[in-house]
Design a protein around this nucleic acid. Structure first.
Lengths: 226, 226
DNA sequence: AGTCCACTCGCTTGTTTCGAGCAAGCTAGT
DNA sequence: ACTAGCTTGCTCGAAACAAGCGAGTGGACT
């Protein structure tokens, strides 16, 4: 059970006036509520989280979450957007200007890094991802859009790898991309259901190696360099 | 929108007395309600399906679904159990007494068959599977149990394959099993989000071939027959 | 063997509780 | 005084539970 202590509400009565703009104020309360929502989703899933709890855990009233986000669905959509933003930033920081196989490996490692540092974050994110799949068409379309983006990103790395002759030219990038994303989503799914049973990092490395063994140019079928 | 016509309630006033036991009676109404629940989940997801609708679509009253299953969660748990039962039957029919690589391929094909014949069924089943992952601990444990069973089954086929020398003896069955189940769950997940983007059958075949290329004895790295 | 009563059990209906969502109201800064 | 962030009041609907209804059944008594 999450301790329902109310966080101090935005310290408005501070001695030196913080001098905030309106946008900054709402950003603070929104942030607090999103954080609270994440904690609650982690603990009980979206289903058993109420907007009342979100508002109160964030240090506000019963109704604020409703008032700001309009609906539960929109709150969670917002959460997913925040997650995606942060993920994209993390990933592109590690991939940088790399291309092809190198970029692919960097992306792979960025997932592992992100996972190690923010496993709760990731957990909540994917709970949202998976629960959304049975929702309204609107939500599902956004999800499909995201999935497509992942697949395209991977496919691009593979194409580059072919151009750079680190990957066999007989390989179909979109098929490989689908294999990779499928493996990844499925791995996370099983990890969510039973974290103890899944060795996340080594599973990803194993899969990467197996994949390169199939799609890499023969002299490339080596262990990734640490 | 599902047409909300009430099905004829169990024809008790039949001319030749059906002479049913209590257990048979409840089995009929339970079955009708599970069927209704499936249809509604398919159409709107678990979220937007009410117990009232389930009962009424099945041809009964507002409250029966509640009365029988106790809670929404338990109804869906029951649905999952029914699905699993049917799946297991289908699968073991095709696997039969096969072992090793043959059994693995048969299992793979059974999925494809089941998919082609009952895609709605599967769809509903996995919506439930994925939505459950963020639920209460009890539910998640059942899910974890299921996942573990799948992994163990695949691992057994791999082990047999090693014994039969169709699969390299350097292969770790549990790792390969995890790769396979991950791929499968992730593929279904993306298919749920966007059925049009995913070519289910060929994706499974592709993956199977890639896997065998890695784990099969060199002379085994051939296309599956048919 | 036939009649009747009481009981069982599948199903319904009444009711409570609680969450989502909306609207109107309040209040601290400008 | 006005704006804008936040709260409170309220309505609607779903879940869950309890009490009730009624058809069919078994047992007792004649």
């Amino acid at each position: 059970m999450v301790q329902m202590r109310r966080l101090k509400p935005a310290s408005r009565a501070s001695n030196k006036a913080p001098r905030l703009t309106q946008a900054e104020r709402t950003a603070i309360s929104d942030g607090r509520m999103l954080e609270a929502a994440m904690a609650l989703v982690l603990e009980r899933g979206t289903h058993n989280t109420t907007l009342r709890e979100v508002g109160e855990l964030a240090g506000y009233s019963r109704g604020l979450a409703s008032n700001r986000f309009g609906s539960k669905d929109e709150l969670f959509a917002e959460l997913i957007d925040v997650f995606n933003e942060r993920w994209k930033k993390e990933s592109s920081a590690l991939v940088g200007s790399k291309t092809g196989l190198e970029a692919f490996d960097a992306a792979n490692e960025s997932i592992i890094d992100f996972m190690n540092d923010n496993s709760d974050y990731i957990r909540a994110m994917f709970i949202l991802y998976y629960e959304t799949v049975g929702s309204s068409t609107v939500m599902r379309e956004r999800l499909a859009e995201q999935h497509g983006a992942y697949r395209r990103a991977i496919a691009r790395y593979i194409s580059q790898g072919i151009a750079e002759q680190t990957i066999k030219r007989t390989v179909d990038p979109t098929r490989v991309a689908l294999q990779y994303t499928s493996f990844f989503f499925g791995l996370v799914y099983q990890w969510l259901a039973n974290p103890d049973a899944i060795e996340f990092e080594s599973a990803l490395h194993d899969f990467r190696d197996a994949m390169i063994q199939v799609i890499g140019e023969t002299d490339m079928a080596v262990r990734r360099s640490a």
